[in-house]
Nucleic acid binder design. Structure first.
Length: 789
DNA sequence: CTAGGGTTAG
């Protein structure tokens, strides 16, 4: 892709280190003073590992509470604290985590319980298990870990760091536990998705006569929200009413969030109304609930109401409000809010700043989004960059997306898995194989290969760029492919025209115990439709609901109509539509119209056209198809009439549609009979046609030569037209009698004119089917003028 | 020890 002027390679990427999130290295001078010199020569990590191993031993086999001091039991031998301090500092550096400033004074302060719990709380927030474990070691050494508060802090540390098993060990070994200890443990279970265990310990509190407090209820209720346990949540609500906890702000707010999560807005509202004191979190919960329901206007209304009630929004509220402004697709709200934020100086935070970027991308105002990112300067995070890049991709500004990605790399913003996922989507939209390959290299280098999202994006990108082989390779390198990975490959086969392969991969997937999803069926049904295997398609469609409990959507119905129509069973298609449980949409009718044209059923075509126009009166494809259909049966007067109608109704013809004519000449081919569908004569004719196109369009087009100005869209236009070019070849394996569509705006690469050569060498295998039209790729290299192909 | 927010793949 020539428009991508930057080149990424293994060599150039070497200077950019990947995502090491080093936060401000604190007071290095102070730390240096405390460091023991001989430590520099030691491998700090090894020491850390050793200590960690010993701690695991102590947690699992001995039980912390029974240990008077670690040194007595030989858990930590003669390690002096100075050495441990140095090790902790190295560990912090290693893991990119801020070591607490006071850390190195531990030597003198170890007896202070309050201080040590503060340290533990800090490391639990940071999620630094390694340093947390060293804290644990120090506690064992001094023998103060038998204390309830210290023990609770340890439970919390392990729980927050995801080592729930160790948390439980510490908990079980404690001499005495209180509500707080239970709260920490329960919160840990819920944070690790272990709802049943949380519920078990919650029940145990009653048995041990430790009365749950409002924190306990708050934790439990929000846990219900995350595992979608609404029944339990309602029961807890009842409990909370009985214990008179509901009017407590924290419990009420977690209940509000729970109800909003389940879309139970009435319950949320009545609870909200009953609150004597609504704080900012209560309002935010309601606004967020409405936002999740996509009721953007209502959410904004609440937002204004809140301010009328004298509450000023905080960062949380503002981000949602901004998202709502993006959602309503009206500029006024967004501008007004943004202006206010600038005035208050609240637009400078990362979260709000990113939400502003996101809002502008939603509104399609990429200039403003870019300005916002620029204005944020160094505070812009990965997320901010990702939001901007995703915005470019969604607004179909692919080259800008690639440019931004490049800029992000240049500015040393550490990329994360989201960045790669979205930039791969950009590659597949272009589509550019060489860029995809470059990004793939970066993925490997950044050690994101094992990320399922990225792997799926890679499969998609390779498939869209025509490199089915590499798409397969990526898939087979995934150790545990999920449903999305499977879908990507099934879809890739389907899009490349390997329908049988798509179907057999689908069966393999089912055998391996993966439950197909809605998207799977879309790919599979489409395969059946293109293969013409109606019966199997019908059975698969029925099994969707019967065996997999997937409710068919419009797109599935559309596929089924296509299945019948393509194979000529027009009446069955009509019957299918009439028996649908929903009102048929234009997209459901459309494949039938295409079928009518293919099989020259003018009468039914007219009926279907009417239905579509009833639903979407400005659908240009209807007029174009009807006109072409009339043309094919020789009703030239009706051809003219369709065009007049279209002008009359001011229907705008979108790019991509073509009338059935090429200048004054008309070409119409049939793909021969079924036994010999691809005769040399057809190739000859088509080749002649190509030359014709080349001659007639070379200078008349308003497009200049591709690859001239980076950042312009020439490459895409070229590809777009080469898709059309490939149409001529792509239809070769369609049923006999299928008219070949001819387009007049086909261009060849005007730099090298090599398209012709490639096209003539093109085999059926190289032609990729994509929906109703096809595009091609060339396996080796491409035109001599660039890496475009 | 507690509630609320921003970016991905099909």
């Amino acid at each position: 892709m020539m428009a991508v002027t930057w080149k990424m390679s293994w060599r150039s990427s070497h200077s950019c280190s990947f995502p090491c999130n080093v936060k401000d290295p604190l007071e290095p001078q102070r730390i240096r003073n405390f460091r023991i010199d001989h430590l520099r020569s030691k491998n700090a990590c090894k020491v850390l590992d050793k200590i960690a191993q010993r701690i695991n031993l102590s947690v699992s086999e001995l039980g912390i509470a029974h240990i008077a001091t670690g040194s007595e039991k030989g858990i930590i031998n003669d390690t002096d604290f100075g050495e441990i301090s140095g090790t902790i500092y190295d560990a912090c550096q290693e893991q990119g985590v801020n070591a607490m400033p006071g850390l190195l004074y531990w030597e003198g302060n170890l007896i202070d319980k309050k201080y040590i719990t503060g340290q533990l709380s800090y490391y639990s927030r940071e999620g630094n298990l390694g340093v947390g474990k060293i804290c644990h070691a120090l506690l064992i050494k001094t023998g103060i870990c038998g204390d309830t508060i210290v023990g609770t802090a340890l439970v919390n540390m392990y729980a927050k760091c995801g080592e729930i098993h160790s948390a439980m060990m510490v908990f079980n070994g404690m001499h005495s536990v209180d509500v707080a200890s239970y709260n920490c443990l329960i919160s840990g279970f819920l944070g690790n998705g272990m709802f049943d265990e949380a519920l078990g310990f919650f029940a145990e509190m009653g048995v041990r006569e430790i009365r749950p407090n409002h924190y306990t209820y708050s934790i439990m209720i929000s846990g219900c929200g995350s595992v979608l346990a609404i029944d339990e949540g309602i029961q807890l609500h009842a409990h909370a009413v009985k214990l008179q906890y509901v009017l407590n702000g924290v419990v009420a707010n977690s209940l509000l969030t729970l109800y909003c999560k389940f879309g139970m807005m009435e319950d949320a509202h009545s609870l909200f109304q009953s609150l004597p004191e609504k704080n900012i979190v209560s309002w935010t919960a309601i606004i967020s609930g409405l936002y999740q329901q996509r009721a953007f206007e209502k959410a904004l209304l609440q937002f204004y109401l809140m301010r009328q009630n004298g509450l000023e929004p905080n960062e949380h509220t503002l981000t949602i409000a901004l998202s709502c402004c993006g959602g309503v697709k009206q500029f006024d709200n967004g501008y007004a809010l943004h202006a206010q934020l600038v005035k208050n100086g609240m637009d400078s935070g990362v979260f709000v700043g990113t939400a502003i970027i996101d809002m502008y991308t939603e509104l399609g105002q990429m200039d403003n989004a870019g300005k916002q990112l620029q204005g944020m300067g160094t505070i812009a995070s990965v997320v901010s960059w990702n939001a901007l890049i995703a915005g470019f991709v969604h607004n179909d500004k692919i080259e800008e997306a690639l440019d931004s990605f490049h800029k992000m790399l240049v500015e040393n913003v550490p990329s994360n898995e989201y960045s790669f996922s979205i930039i791969l989507k950009a590659c597949s939209s272009l589509p550019s194989l060489s860029t995809s390959k470059q990004i793939h290299c970066w993925v490997v280098k950044a050690n994101f290969e094992r990320n399922l999202h990225i792997a799926s994006s890679l499969i998609e990108a390779y498939a869209k760029c025509g490199n089915l082989h590499d798409a397969e390779n990526v898939f087979y390198q995934i150790s545990m492919p999920d449903i999305v990975s499977w879908n990507c490959l099934v879809k890739a086969y389907s899009q490349h025209g390997y329908f049988r392969k798509a179907l057999s991969l689908f069966r393999k997937m089912v055998v391996e115990g993966i439950k197909p999803s809605s998207s799977t069926f879309l790919a599979v049904l489409s395969s059946c439709s293109h293969c013409g295997i109606v019966q199997e398609g019908k059975e698969l469609f029925e099994s969707m609901l019967m065996n997999y409990n997937i409710i068919p959507e419009d797109t599935h119905y559309s596929c089924m109509v296509d299945l019948f129509s393509r194979s000529g069973q027009l009446e069955d298609a009509l019957d299918f539509i009439k028996r649908l449980p929903i009102k048929p949409t234009a997209s459901i009718w459309r494949p039938l119209l295409a079928g009518c044209r293919c099989h020259s059923n003018v009468q039914l075509g007219e009926y279907v056209a009417k239905r579509i126009l009833e639903l979407e009166s400005h659908d240009a494809s209807v007029y174009v198809t009807m006109s072409n259909m009339y043309f094919e049966v020789g009703r030239l007067a009706d051809v003219v009439k369709q065009r007049e109608l279209m002008t009359l109704k001011e229907v705008k013809k979108e790019p991509g549609y073509s009338w059935m004519e090429v200048k004054s000449k008309t070409y119409k081919f049939f793909s021969g009979d079924k036994t010999h569908p691809q005769t040399p004569e057809i190739y000859d004719l088509l080749e002649k046609l190509m030359i014709d196109f080349k001659d007639t369009n070379h200078d008349s087009s308003n497009m200049s030569a591709p690859h001239t100005q980076p950042g312009q869209n020439h490459d895409r236009k070229l590809l777009y037209h080469s898709e059309k070019l490939a149409v001529c070849f792509g239809l070769l394996n369609l049923p006999a009698g299928t008219p070949i569509r001819v387009y007049k705006n086909i261009r060849v690469c005007s730099d090298c004119h090599e398209t012709m050569k490639h096209i003539s060498k093109l085999s059926k295998r190289d032609v990729i089917l994509r929906d109703n039209y096809r595009f091609h790729h060339f396996k080796q290299g491409g035109c001599s003028c660039g890496d475009f192909w």
